[in-house]
Amino acid sequence: MVLAVENLFIHGPSSSGPVAVVESLTLALPAATTLALVGESGCGKTITALSIMGLLPPGFFITSGSVKLGGEELTFLSKTELRQRRGKSMAMIFQEPMTALNPVMTVGRQITEVLLTHRVCPPSQARDKAIALLGQVGLKEPEKRFSSYPHEFSGGMRQRVMCVMAICANPQLIIADEPTTALDATVQAQILELLRELQSQSGAAILLITHNLLAASILADRLTVLYAGSVMETGPTAAVLNSPAHPYTRGLLGSQPRLRLGRDALCGIPPTLAAISGQVPPPGRRPLGCAFFSRCPQALKDCRDNRPHPVSKGPEHQAACFR
Protein backbone atom coordinates (compact mmCIF):
# COMPACT_ATOMS: atom_id res chain seq x y z
CA MET A 1 0.00 0.00 0.00
CA VAL A 2 1.62 3.25 -1.09
CA LEU A 3 -0.94 5.52 0.48
CA ALA A 4 -3.18 4.54 3.35
CA VAL A 5 -5.47 7.17 4.81
CA GLU A 6 -7.50 6.03 7.76
CA ASN A 7 -10.42 7.71 9.44
CA LEU A 8 -9.06 11.17 8.63
CA PHE A 9 -10.73 14.24 10.07
CA ILE A 10 -9.71 17.73 9.02
CA HIS A 11 -11.06 20.87 10.65
CA GLY A 12 -11.02 24.32 9.13
CA PRO A 13 -11.74 27.82 10.38
CA SER A 14 -15.13 29.51 10.29
CA SER A 15 -16.70 32.49 12.00
CA SER A 16 -18.06 30.18 14.70
CA GLY A 17 -14.90 28.24 15.48
CA PRO A 18 -13.41 25.19 13.80
CA VAL A 19 -15.70 23.06 11.68
CA ALA A 20 -15.14 19.65 10.15
CA VAL A 21 -14.16 19.91 6.48
CA VAL A 22 -13.27 16.28 5.89
CA GLU A 23 -14.93 13.60 7.98
CA SER A 24 -13.86 10.03 8.51
CA LEU A 25 -12.06 9.62 5.21
CA THR A 26 -10.45 6.29 4.44
CA LEU A 27 -8.42 5.67 1.30
CA ALA A 28 -6.14 2.85 0.24
CA LEU A 29 -3.92 3.16 -2.79
CA PRO A 30 -1.58 0.34 -3.87
CA ALA A 31 1.41 0.95 -6.16
CA ALA A 32 0.84 1.42 -9.88
CA THR A 33 -2.85 2.08 -9.46
CA THR A 34 -4.95 5.20 -9.72
CA LEU A 35 -7.64 6.30 -7.35
CA ALA A 36 -9.90 9.15 -8.35
CA LEU A 37 -11.39 11.35 -5.67
CA VAL A 38 -14.54 12.76 -7.28
CA GLY A 39 -16.91 15.43 -6.03
CA GLU A 40 -18.08 19.00 -6.45
CA SER A 41 -16.04 21.93 -5.27
CA GLY A 42 -16.47 22.49 -1.57
CA CYS A 43 -16.43 18.78 -0.84
CA GLY A 44 -12.97 18.73 0.68
CA LYS A 45 -11.10 17.07 -2.19
CA THR A 46 -8.34 19.62 -2.44
CA ILE A 47 -7.99 19.93 1.33
CA THR A 48 -7.51 16.17 1.49
CA ALA A 49 -4.76 16.37 -1.11
CA LEU A 50 -3.06 19.24 0.66
CA SER A 51 -3.23 17.42 3.99
CA ILE A 52 -1.41 14.44 2.49
CA MET A 53 1.25 16.76 1.09
CA GLY A 54 1.50 18.54 4.44
CA LEU A 55 0.54 21.80 2.77
CA LEU A 56 -2.68 22.60 4.64
CA PRO A 57 -3.44 26.33 4.54
CA PRO A 58 -3.30 28.23 7.84
CA GLY A 59 -6.24 27.47 10.08
CA PHE A 60 -6.71 23.92 8.81
CA PHE A 61 -5.67 20.98 10.99
CA ILE A 62 -5.74 17.23 10.88
CA THR A 63 -7.70 16.52 14.05
CA SER A 64 -7.57 12.73 14.01
CA GLY A 65 -6.79 9.78 11.81
CA SER A 66 -3.66 8.65 10.09
CA VAL A 67 -1.99 9.24 6.74
CA LYS A 68 0.62 6.63 5.84
CA LEU A 69 2.89 6.92 2.88
CA GLY A 70 4.73 3.67 2.16
CA GLY A 71 4.06 2.59 5.71
CA GLU A 72 5.39 5.79 7.28
CA GLU A 73 3.03 7.91 9.32
CA LEU A 74 3.00 11.44 7.90
CA THR A 75 0.86 13.22 10.46
CA PHE A 76 3.63 13.06 13.08
CA LEU A 77 6.38 14.42 10.84
CA SER A 78 7.90 17.83 11.37
CA LYS A 79 7.79 20.51 8.71
CA THR A 80 11.37 19.83 7.65
CA GLU A 81 10.78 16.11 7.38
CA LEU A 82 7.66 16.70 5.32
CA ARG A 83 9.55 19.04 3.04
CA GLN A 84 12.11 16.31 2.40
CA ARG A 85 9.31 13.91 1.44
CA ARG A 86 7.66 16.38 -0.92
CA GLY A 87 8.92 16.01 -4.44
CA LYS A 88 11.00 13.01 -3.43
CA SER A 89 8.41 10.46 -2.36
CA MET A 90 5.24 12.36 -3.18
CA ALA A 91 4.61 15.03 -5.78
CA MET A 92 1.70 17.17 -6.81
CA ILE A 93 0.38 18.39 -10.16
CA PHE A 94 -1.74 21.50 -9.86
CA GLN A 95 -4.79 22.65 -11.75
CA GLU A 96 -3.37 25.80 -13.28
CA PRO A 97 0.08 25.10 -14.72
CA MET A 98 0.67 28.77 -15.49
CA THR A 99 0.67 29.76 -11.84
CA ALA A 100 2.52 26.66 -10.70
CA LEU A 101 5.54 27.42 -12.89
CA ASN A 102 7.88 30.31 -12.25
CA PRO A 103 7.38 32.73 -15.17
CA VAL A 104 10.87 34.27 -15.06
CA MET A 105 12.85 31.00 -15.07
CA THR A 106 13.36 28.75 -18.06
CA VAL A 107 11.55 25.46 -17.88
CA GLY A 108 14.87 23.64 -18.02
CA ARG A 109 16.22 25.44 -15.01
CA GLN A 110 13.12 24.71 -12.99
CA ILE A 111 13.40 21.02 -13.78
CA THR A 112 17.14 20.78 -13.08
CA GLU A 113 16.55 22.55 -9.80
CA VAL A 114 14.18 19.80 -8.69
CA LEU A 115 16.60 17.15 -9.96
CA LEU A 116 19.45 18.64 -7.96
CA THR A 117 17.44 19.31 -4.80
CA HIS A 118 16.51 15.66 -4.54
CA ARG A 119 19.93 14.48 -5.76
CA VAL A 120 18.39 12.47 -8.55
CA CYS A 121 21.52 12.77 -10.64
CA PRO A 122 24.90 14.53 -10.45
CA PRO A 123 24.87 18.18 -11.60
CA SER A 124 26.84 17.31 -14.73
CA GLN A 125 24.04 15.07 -15.98
CA ALA A 126 21.10 17.20 -14.88
CA ARG A 127 20.69 18.91 -18.24
CA ASP A 128 20.64 15.68 -20.23
CA LYS A 129 18.29 14.09 -17.76
CA ALA A 130 15.90 17.04 -17.95
CA ILE A 131 15.92 16.97 -21.74
CA ALA A 132 15.27 13.24 -21.70
CA LEU A 133 12.33 13.78 -19.37
CA LEU A 134 10.89 16.51 -21.58
CA GLY A 135 11.05 14.08 -24.49
CA GLN A 136 9.47 11.39 -22.38
CA VAL A 137 6.33 13.45 -21.77
CA GLY A 138 5.88 13.90 -25.49
CA LEU A 139 7.27 17.37 -26.09
CA LYS A 140 8.80 17.82 -29.53
CA GLU A 141 12.33 19.24 -29.73
CA PRO A 142 13.11 18.87 -26.02
CA GLU A 143 16.49 20.64 -26.37
CA LYS A 144 14.73 23.74 -27.63
CA ARG A 145 12.02 23.45 -25.00
CA PHE A 146 14.64 23.18 -22.27
CA SER A 147 15.56 26.84 -22.65
CA SER A 148 12.02 28.16 -23.20
CA TYR A 149 10.00 30.13 -20.69
CA PRO A 150 6.58 28.93 -19.47
CA HIS A 151 4.69 31.63 -21.38
CA GLU A 152 6.00 30.25 -24.67
CA PHE A 153 4.07 27.02 -24.04
CA SER A 154 0.42 26.22 -24.63
CA GLY A 155 -1.73 25.07 -21.71
CA GLY A 156 -1.34 21.41 -22.55
CA MET A 157 2.43 21.70 -22.93
CA ARG A 158 2.72 23.47 -19.59
CA GLN A 159 0.80 20.67 -17.97
CA ARG A 160 3.28 18.23 -19.54
CA VAL A 161 6.09 20.22 -17.97
CA MET A 162 4.30 19.97 -14.64
CA CYS A 163 4.22 16.21 -15.15
CA VAL A 164 7.98 16.23 -15.63
CA MET A 165 8.45 18.18 -12.41
CA ALA A 166 6.23 15.69 -10.62
CA ILE A 167 7.89 12.52 -11.86
CA CYS A 168 11.51 13.58 -12.01
CA ALA A 169 12.41 12.35 -8.52
CA ASN A 170 10.50 9.12 -9.07
CA PRO A 171 7.95 9.58 -6.29
CA GLN A 172 5.85 6.73 -4.97
CA LEU A 173 2.75 8.91 -5.02
CA ILE A 174 1.60 11.56 -7.49
CA ILE A 175 -1.33 13.72 -6.50
CA ALA A 176 -2.98 15.32 -9.52
CA ASP A 177 -5.38 18.06 -8.42
CA GLU A 178 -7.78 18.77 -11.29
CA PRO A 179 -4.91 18.40 -13.78
CA THR A 180 -7.13 18.86 -16.82
CA THR A 181 -9.86 21.23 -15.70
CA ALA A 182 -8.15 24.32 -17.10
CA LEU A 183 -7.52 22.60 -20.43
CA ASP A 184 -9.47 22.06 -23.61
CA ALA A 185 -11.43 18.84 -23.89
CA THR A 186 -9.06 17.58 -26.57
CA VAL A 187 -5.98 18.17 -24.46
CA GLN A 188 -7.64 16.74 -21.36
CA ALA A 189 -7.67 13.23 -22.73
CA GLN A 190 -4.06 13.54 -23.86
CA ILE A 191 -2.84 14.56 -20.43
CA LEU A 192 -4.76 11.76 -18.75
CA GLU A 193 -3.31 9.26 -21.21
CA LEU A 194 0.14 10.69 -20.55
CA LEU A 195 -0.29 10.24 -16.81
CA ARG A 196 -1.31 6.64 -17.38
CA GLU A 197 1.73 6.05 -19.53
CA LEU A 198 4.07 7.58 -16.98
CA GLN A 199 2.49 5.47 -14.29
CA SER A 200 3.06 2.27 -16.18
CA GLN A 201 6.73 3.18 -16.55
CA SER A 202 7.40 4.25 -12.98
CA GLY A 203 4.85 2.26 -11.02
CA ALA A 204 3.80 5.31 -9.03
CA ALA A 205 0.41 5.47 -7.41
CA ILE A 206 -1.78 8.35 -8.61
CA LEU A 207 -4.39 10.13 -6.58
CA LEU A 208 -6.51 11.95 -9.14
CA ILE A 209 -8.72 14.74 -7.88
CA THR A 210 -11.48 15.85 -10.20
CA HIS A 211 -15.08 16.98 -10.38
CA ASN A 212 -15.62 15.18 -13.65
CA LEU A 213 -16.66 11.54 -13.21
CA LEU A 214 -16.26 10.69 -16.86
CA ALA A 215 -12.79 12.19 -17.09
CA ALA A 216 -11.85 10.25 -13.99
CA SER A 217 -12.99 7.08 -15.69
CA ILE A 218 -10.30 7.45 -18.35
CA LEU A 219 -7.49 7.10 -15.87
CA ALA A 220 -8.76 5.67 -12.61
CA ASP A 221 -8.85 2.05 -11.47
CA ARG A 222 -10.96 2.94 -8.50
CA LEU A 223 -13.32 5.80 -7.75
CA THR A 224 -14.10 7.38 -4.42
CA VAL A 225 -17.02 9.78 -4.53
CA LEU A 226 -16.76 12.47 -1.91
CA TYR A 227 -19.63 14.73 -0.88
CA ALA A 228 -19.51 17.39 1.83
CA GLY A 229 -16.41 15.89 3.36
CA SER A 230 -17.67 12.31 3.57
CA VAL A 231 -17.24 9.32 1.31
CA MET A 232 -20.49 8.45 -0.44
CA GLU A 233 -19.34 5.58 -2.56
CA THR A 234 -16.13 3.80 -3.37
CA GLY A 235 -15.37 0.96 -5.71
CA PRO A 236 -13.74 -0.19 -8.95
CA THR A 237 -14.35 2.32 -11.79
CA ALA A 238 -16.43 -0.03 -13.89
CA ALA A 239 -18.63 -1.10 -11.00
CA VAL A 240 -19.28 2.46 -9.83
CA LEU A 241 -20.07 3.72 -13.32
CA ASN A 242 -22.14 0.77 -14.45
CA SER A 243 -24.09 0.28 -11.25
CA PRO A 244 -23.82 3.40 -9.11
CA ALA A 245 -25.17 2.55 -5.68
CA HIS A 246 -25.44 6.01 -4.16
CA PRO A 247 -27.98 8.63 -5.26
CA TYR A 248 -25.23 11.24 -5.38
CA THR A 249 -23.13 9.19 -7.78
CA ARG A 250 -26.23 8.64 -9.89
CA GLY A 251 -26.87 12.38 -9.78
CA LEU A 252 -23.33 13.19 -10.87
CA LEU A 253 -23.53 10.71 -13.72
CA GLY A 254 -26.90 11.93 -14.85
CA SER A 255 -25.88 15.55 -14.79
CA GLN A 256 -23.05 15.17 -17.26
CA PRO A 257 -24.03 15.49 -20.89
CA ARG A 258 -22.71 12.36 -22.50
CA LEU A 259 -21.49 12.41 -26.01
CA ARG A 260 -23.77 10.23 -28.09
CA LEU A 261 -22.25 9.05 -31.30
CA GLY A 262 -23.42 7.09 -34.30
CA ARG A 263 -26.98 5.88 -34.20
CA ASP A 264 -27.47 7.18 -30.66
CA ALA A 265 -26.98 10.70 -31.95
CA LEU A 266 -29.98 10.32 -34.25
CA CYS A 267 -32.32 9.21 -31.49
CA GLY A 268 -32.71 12.72 -30.20
CA ILE A 269 -31.22 14.17 -27.07
CA PRO A 270 -33.33 14.52 -23.93
CA PRO A 271 -34.10 18.22 -23.47
CA THR A 272 -33.09 18.32 -19.81
CA LEU A 273 -30.26 16.75 -17.88
CA ALA A 274 -30.94 15.04 -14.59
CA ALA A 275 -29.29 17.79 -12.58
CA ILE A 276 -28.87 17.62 -8.81
CA SER A 277 -30.71 20.64 -7.47
CA GLY A 278 -29.25 23.03 -4.92
CA GLN A 279 -25.65 23.25 -3.88
CA VAL A 280 -23.13 21.69 -1.54
CA PRO A 281 -23.78 22.82 2.04
CA PRO A 282 -20.70 24.62 3.37
CA PRO A 283 -18.83 23.03 6.27
CA GLY A 284 -20.60 23.92 9.48
CA ARG A 285 -24.03 23.82 7.83
CA ARG A 286 -23.97 20.19 6.84
CA PRO A 287 -26.94 18.04 7.76
CA LEU A 288 -26.68 16.00 10.92
CA GLY A 289 -27.51 12.73 9.27
CA CYS A 290 -26.54 11.82 5.75
CA ALA A 291 -24.48 14.62 4.22
CA PHE A 292 -26.44 14.38 0.98
CA PHE A 293 -29.78 14.54 2.76
CA SER A 294 -30.64 18.10 1.72
CA ARG A 295 -30.34 17.37 -1.99
CA CYS A 296 -31.23 13.71 -2.18
CA PRO A 297 -34.27 12.92 -4.33
CA GLN A 298 -34.79 9.67 -2.43
CA ALA A 299 -34.15 10.79 1.14
CA LEU A 300 -35.82 8.78 3.87
CA LYS A 301 -36.87 10.01 7.28
CA ASP A 302 -33.96 8.12 8.76
CA CYS A 303 -31.48 10.01 6.62
CA ARG A 304 -32.01 13.26 8.44
CA ASP A 305 -30.85 12.10 11.85
CA ASN A 306 -28.66 9.09 11.23
CA ARG A 307 -25.50 8.96 9.26
CA PRO A 308 -25.39 5.89 7.01
CA HIS A 309 -22.29 3.75 7.22
CA PRO A 310 -20.61 2.23 4.17
CA VAL A 311 -22.38 -0.94 3.13
CA SER A 312 -20.97 -3.47 0.72
CA LYS A 313 -22.65 -3.35 -2.69
CA GLY A 314 -20.39 -5.77 -4.50
CA PRO A 315 -16.76 -6.86 -4.54
CA GLU A 316 -14.74 -3.96 -3.09
CA HIS A 317 -17.71 -1.73 -3.80
CA GLN A 318 -19.21 0.20 -0.90
CA ALA A 319 -21.79 2.92 -0.60
CA ALA A 320 -22.96 4.92 2.38
CA CYS A 321 -26.70 4.85 1.83
CA PHE A 322 -29.64 3.33 3.68
CA ARG A 323 -31.38 2.33 0.49
Partner: peptide, 8 residues
Amino acid sequence: LSASVTDW
Protein backbone atom coordinates in the same frame (compact mmCIF):
# COMPACT_ATOMS: atom_id res chain seq x y z
CA LEU B 1 -14.50 13.75 -31.21
CA SER B 2 -12.16 10.98 -30.21
CA ALA B 3 -10.47 13.16 -27.65
CA SER B 4 -13.82 13.99 -26.13
CA VAL B 5 -15.17 10.48 -25.78
CA THR B 6 -15.62 10.15 -22.06
CA ASP B 7 -18.55 7.79 -22.25
CA TRP B 8 -17.11 4.85 -20.46
